[in-house]
Design a protein around this nucleic acid. Sequence first.
DNA 1: TATGCTTACGATGAGCGTAACTATG
DNA 2: CATAGTTACGCTCATCGTAAGCATA
Lengths: 309, 309
Amino acid sequence: MSVRRLNHVVALAEEGSFARAAERVHLSQPALSRSIQAIEDELGLRLFDRAARGVAVTQAGKTIVERARRVLFEANCLVRDAELLKTHEIGEVRIGLGPYPATILLPDLLVGFARLHPNVGLKLELNHAHAMIDMLLAEQLDFIVIDKRVLPDNPALAIKPLRRHDGRWFGRAGHPLASREAVFAVDLRKFPLVTVPLPPFMHSAVHRLLKIRSHEKIPVQLECNDVRVLKSFVEQTDALLFATASSVHKELAARTLVPIAVKDAPRIGLAFALVVLADRTLSPAGEVALALAGQMLNDVNLDAVEPVK
Amino acid sequence: MSVRRLNHVVALAEEGSFARAAERVHLSQPALSRSIQAIEDELGLRLFDRAARGVAVTQAGKTIVERARRVLFEANCLVRDAELLKTHEIGEVRIGLGPYPATILLPDLLVGFARLHPNVGLKLELNHAHAMIDMLLAEQLDFIVIDKRVLPDNPALAIKPLRRHDGRWFGRAGHPLASREAVFAVDLRKFPLVTVPLPPFMHSAVHRLLKIRSHEKIPVQLECNDVRVLKSFVEQTDALLFATASSVHKELAARTLVPIAVKDAPRIGLAFALVVLADRTLSPAGEVALALAGQMLNDVNLDAVEPVK
DNA sequence: TATGCTTACGATGAGCGTAACTATG
DNA sequence: CATAGTTACGCTCATCGTAAGCATA
């Protein structure tokens, strides 16, 4: 039994004439006649009484026509949903973000995406890399944005690398180090340090930079996985923040934070990547969000030591 | 989009493998593969991700599969209803009965039919012929049972004549006329007469029978379209009832009413007929009720002047 | 190499339009 | 004879099964 056939039945019931119904369903009149005969045979029920003047629905036919309408309604819903999914007008996108990507992308990504596709639901997970990778593998997330160096070597994960974001040091406007001609790495240790929880490779890089002895820990005063917390702390104290310029570009623009240029510091980079499940198809809305996130992370002024507009 | 296709989609989603799903929908595995490709193309959406180990439903696919399930559910309902209609397990039968047919058929017809098809609704209309004919033409009734001589000459009505039921006279057990050797028509006039409202042809027949002058009316003491009312009245008085034997066969059997054999009375017959709309198909359950009514009206002991069992 | 999905190919039949037929007012 | 539905006929395309192809563990 085809949906097409049921449409023929409903059209004939509503038009009351084979000729008119045939026109409505874009069929020749004989073809419609056969189509109706076919479904009557298939169901073993006479649905219509043919008279010289018009066609009447039988009692049994009325029941079937009612049922047919409901099938057609559901079928139309399916087609409509397919269309909406394609045009990103329905659906749900679930994104996992690491601390820096979250700071860089939020809330611009959400606002931008919600403006483009207001009826697509967004679910955000801000968490540790390993927790998000587990969720991705369990198909609880569509994609995640983290530093690719923390990723396990799992062929189920497809990694789309993004441009490198350099880590830099930032202090409040008017910070003692801001007015210094030349700042060296050791100078940084005179001030409290704040940072997000650093993955091992970042931890050792900072450890080397600050020339801390191997058995000593980095003297971090405040560690928090929410960069906003760090930023507001640094704005009000003499503490120094290690972060990407991209994650503080708004504060740089507002001049509430300023970069501390360290003369003898090697570049410590963040290598963000978009991570999806290999061989799994994203929903169309998910593709859009993925592209948007990638674009925003690549387009942001990476080395903004001067205010951006 | 065919219901068949949607079934393929749901089967594949549930089985997680083309081979197993193909078996479930009785198709070769390549055929199923093409069928899925076809609907993916038709919707413009990838519904499944094929991997070496098994098949996974995409995010968009999950939405579509859910929709497909609902379409299939409605389609199954339709097929099921068609089956139930055919086996008289659902539906509604609407019957119009004239006074005598009602008395003869009720409640046996209802009980018998309800026993055969407990889930088919029954609607009864007990009314004047012209009202019921109007309802029949308006498709508010499936068929009516009345004297065919009251029917207008309307080609939209299809008439299935039944056996003739003779009208006779009845009185209470022990009625003065019951013990008389010979009763003549004029003797009837000594007693009150009760009857249902008589159609014109019956009225004039009775008028002639009782040898009433043309300008005089038939002296009817009680006229009621409910024969049961008439019967209980006659059982308790010396009134005489004009009715068909078939409509009082239970009272004859119980000997609460007895026939009054009139020597010089011509036979006055009731010509019942089943009336349906010409060229309109009854529901299967309606056909059964129609046949049952016709059978009961033809099988009843028409001339039962002696008790029936 | 075994497993599992896809592509190729030929055959079948469902479904279409045109045209001829039939019934009815 | 006009109107409306059905049957006849030939064609096309959707869909099938079998067999070969191809990717992956």
